[in-house]
Write a protein that binds this DNA or RNA. Structure first.
Lengths: 340, 340
DNA sequence: GGAGATTCTGTTATGGATAACAAATATTGT
DNA sequence: ACAATATTTGTTATCCATAACAGAATCTCC
């Protein structure tokens, strides 16, 4: 009944026997130990080739205590940032000789701790958390206390283990761009408050307006989905005074634009819209979306690098590793309509 | 120098000692074996709780030969289908009590075989391949001969291990929709020929036109990216006779529409465009995109189910598991312009 | 009451690789 | 030439949990 139609391949012992050496010698050859005679090395490698032998990583992990695997925790939603970060992590891991174990979770404390727990017991050497921890932070840090961890959402109290994009700058760039175009103020469709990215953007947007002496309108909230952007767009589009909107993600921005369009407001003639993320489709929407570029893929890569460094040297403290985003001006922003 | 600041947690032996029983008894408790006295069970569980003990899955995998892990191979590109499939796989795996190990690859024979190889030696119980194998098929099937495998791209000769969406129907639905609206014929921006999805869509589009007695225009090719759609759109938009286009993916369709718009052709008044996939943003583009809905997430889930069944019973043959897609009519399609 | 079946628990062997130690052979220096 | 060192290879113990087997204790039924 068990899956035993699939026989296991040869073991190191088999290779050893066939090559007329001990298993340990085979191990040495495979691990590039210096003290192996060239002739035996070649003989062993020949047998390895012939038998199609591959080292069993499970056994290896058991004895070395290192699985050469890193775990990634993401939320169970399919958005651009999640998937490109995951891609970056995979590429980075491959470069570093690691394999990726991914789990998804919902946003509850229980689900998050379960997910992290699953990763730890799966034997990963380190964990990348790409989800807002919030109340789960304490519980989770108990579990991750014994294992290197990197965060890409700074909500937790793991400031020194943060890797990401400077969200403050992102929102400042976007807001200033709109103000520079001559808009009196900028409205904001924020992301879910649980996400620290969303929170920083919200804070910076507000601060930028205040510093510029502009009135700070009440912010609206979405959940990163295009639908939520659409709903908020239906509200914003009804208010004639709204001429500039900063949307916390490109995907929501698409929804906002659609809603505004349906309400008869032209982009960018009547209303300017700025997104954040620069998703692949942003350049090809109608109109093309002005946005803030931040490479999630790059973030994923850097997170892996940081993590691997931490695995090699756990004492490594380090400061937050934040990268500056850039403003990409496209067709969705323009000066406000002349008449008032 | 090795990562040993992070001490390993307690082992089963420690729990056993603390509870005054043998390791085997602890194992029995943790595996819900029937023959354990209620009092000892409780005692063991109490100690487990107290010590924060967790079973070491690596050791478990080594002795049982099952890692409760499935491997997923995808190409190293970040598109909607890839990521939502991956999400579906993760959700499905969690439901089935499995963990996911993901690797990405480029499209070369070498890279693909390496990637599969990595998964196998990582000790996964089964593999889901979500990439076109093509010339690598033979090599790969050698590696996967000993391990359950499911394909979501039917390019390989693994017909009986296929799970996916019926791509023939998808293209037929789309093409017929356009013909039904009164278009004389339908142009096609296909995906990369290596992908069997792209190939089936191309074939069905052609056949549908032929059966309807329509002229079959030469097809254009993209690489699934919005950019490639844009490039093809710049070509199609220059030909006045083009009034209907079937684009092999929504993401390319966005690019096509952008190009047509820039060339002054209105959608859908001048040209109708149909995409395939129904990505989240399709409903919120300008105009909203008529498309063929196929749930990748669901495909991922089904792939896992199929795989898990195969792991439990390797003899299981089974026929391709294809699901019918549906047409979603939105604003990007309309009857052809009256005048000629 | 005692042979045989049940229930509970412990002991030993196993999975595949590596670390630590040990032995054999080769090389160097004086 | 012989002790001292370096190189190459082998042996044994270990990582942690489970399977297979075995012993002790309790129960069943005639």
């Amino acid at each position: 009944m068990t899956a035993s139609q699939f026989t296991r391949g040869p073991a190191m012992r088999d290779v050893a026997t066939a090559a007329g050496v001990s298993a340990q010698t085979v191990s040495r050859v495979l691990n590039d130990h210096p003290n192996v005679q060239e002739s035996t090395r070649r003989r062993v490698l020949a047998v390895v080739e012939e038998l199609g032998y591959r080292r069993n990583n499970t056994a290896r992990a058991l004895v070395t205590g290192q699985s050469k695997t890193i775990g990634v925790l993401t939320l169970a939603t399919n958005n651009y940032s999640r998937s490109s970060l995951a891609l970056g992590v995979e590429l980075g891991a491959r470069e570093a000789g690691y394999t990726v174990n991914s789990v998804t979770s919902s946003l509850s404390v229980q689900a998050l701790t379960d997910a992290v727990s699953r990763l730890v017991h799966q034997g990963v050497d380190g964990i990348i958390i790409a989800a807002p921890l919030q109340e789960a932070a304490e519980q989770v840090s108990k579990i991750t206390a014994r294992i290197p961890t990197v965060n890409t959402d700074g909500s937790s109290n793991m400031g020194d283990r943060m890797v990401g994009v400077d969200q403050d700058i992102a929102a400042v760039l976007a807001t200033k761009h709109l103000l520079d175009l001559g808009h009196k103020t900028v409205w904001h469709v924020a992301g879910p408050v649980e996400w620290s990215d969303a929170a920083s953007r919200l804070g910076s947007w507000r601060r930028t307006l205040q510093e510029a002496g502009c009135e700070v309108p009440p912010e609206l909230h979405g959940d990163w989905s295009p639908e939520s952007g659409y709903r908020n767009g239906l509200i914003l589009g009804r208010m004639p005074e709204v001429t500039a909107i900063l949307v916390a993600s490109d995907e929501m921005a698409f929804g906002v634009i659609r809603a505004l369009t349906e309400l008869g407001r032209r982009i960018p003639e009547d209303v300017s819209v700025v997104g954040i993320d620069d998703i692949d489709l942003a350049a090809f929407s109608n109109p093309p979306l002005t946005t803030i570029r931040q490479s999630f893929e790059d973030t994923g890569r850097r997170a892996v690098q940081r993590l691997v460094a931490q695995i090699a040297n756990p004492a490594l403290a380090g400061s937050p590793d934040l990268v500056a985003p850039t403003l990409i001006v496209r067709g969705s922003t323009a000066p406000p309509p002349a008449a008032k």
